[in-house]
């Protein structure tokens, strides 16, 4: 599997939709810094790294895990204990993708020169999340359109024909939220805890797919699962953002300027 697999057949509609799904959340979490070019550097890095990280790290890692379980317990036991057996693979995927977002956030923060500004950390992490989440959405939409999707598919098939779009509608803000959490952690000197939280949230969201395979969730309720995971993650990101409002040097300076205080 090469990184090109994670491009698909490029379609302009995919790019437009990915941007529409990402930009509003990025604005809400990174306002005040959107004109700062380092933010876009972090976004671009996460987007560029995504196909390589998935093709060259995540997929081989998951392949090794699959081989390990197969040789250890066999296919029948794997099917019986699918939920348990899938957990390491889910964690591996979360680690790889959250690491990509953290890398993007670190780059943006260092270029901004605001290494220990928590609000900048939220913004940088959100930007990296927008890069990875937006690129992933671009790839998924490319796949959907290349498979021949038309509005007629919705007219005939109903809501299930929109599942791919609905899922990305929630997945993109999830990535932005979890990126913001990691970025906040890096800037607040609690990288480990916040990164672990982002990985845990990511794993829980991805667990929905396994729950669908085991019959606990169906195609519709798994989207509700993703939506709930995204809502929790974005809520935490906004809570962290609000925490930074009263502690950010930039905010203090703005408030100071508004009150006529020198400096």
């Amino acid at each position: 599997m090469t990184p090109l697999y994670f491009v698909g057949v490029p379609d302009w509609r995919s790019a437009v939709l990915a941007a529409l799904f990402a930009l509003p959340w990025l604005y809400l979490l990174a306002r005040g810094r959107l004109r700062h070019w380092p933010l876009w550097a972090g976004l671009a890095l996460a987007a560029v790294l995504f196909p390589f990280a998935i093709a060259w790290v995540q997929v081989p890692l998951q392949g090794l895990l699959n081989q390990f379980w197969l040789s250890l317990i066999g296919i029948d036991a794997i099917k019986r204990f699918l939920l348990l057996v899938s957990l390491p693979s889910l964690v591996a995927a979360s680690l790889v993708q959250e690491a990509v977002k953290l890398l993007g956030a670190v780059l943006a923060l260092r270029l901004l020169g605001e290494r220990h500004d928590a609000r900048a950390g939220v913004a940088a992490g959100a930007a990296a999340g927008a890069g990875l989440g937006g690129y992933e959405a671009f790839w998924v939409f490319n796949t959907i359109f290349a498979a021949g999707w038309t509005w007629g598919s919705v007219q005939l098939g109903g809501a299930p024909a929109l599942v791919g779009f609905i899922e990305r509608f929630f997945a993109v803000p999830f990535h932005i939220g979890s990126g913001a959490i990691s970025g906040y952690g890096y800037a607040s000197r609690c990288t480990g805890r916040c990164f672990a939280l982002a990985v845990a949230l990511h794993t829980v969201v991805n667990l929905g797919v396994i729950l669908m395979q085991t019959g606990v969730l169906n195609a519709l309720t798994v989207e509700a699962w993703v939506a709930a995971g995204a809502a929790v993650t974005v809520a935490i990101a906004f809570w962290l953002y609000r925490l930074t409002l009263h502690s950010s040097p930039m905010t203090r300076n703005s408030l100071g300027a508004g009150m006529g205080v020198a400096g």
Binding site: A146, A147, G148, G152, S153, L156, G157
Partner: peptide
């Protein structure tokens, strides 16, 4: 390629 069963058209 037109698939009428799900109204898709595939290059």
């Amino acid at each position: 390629n037109v698939v009428v069963a799900n109204a898709t058209k595939i290059n």
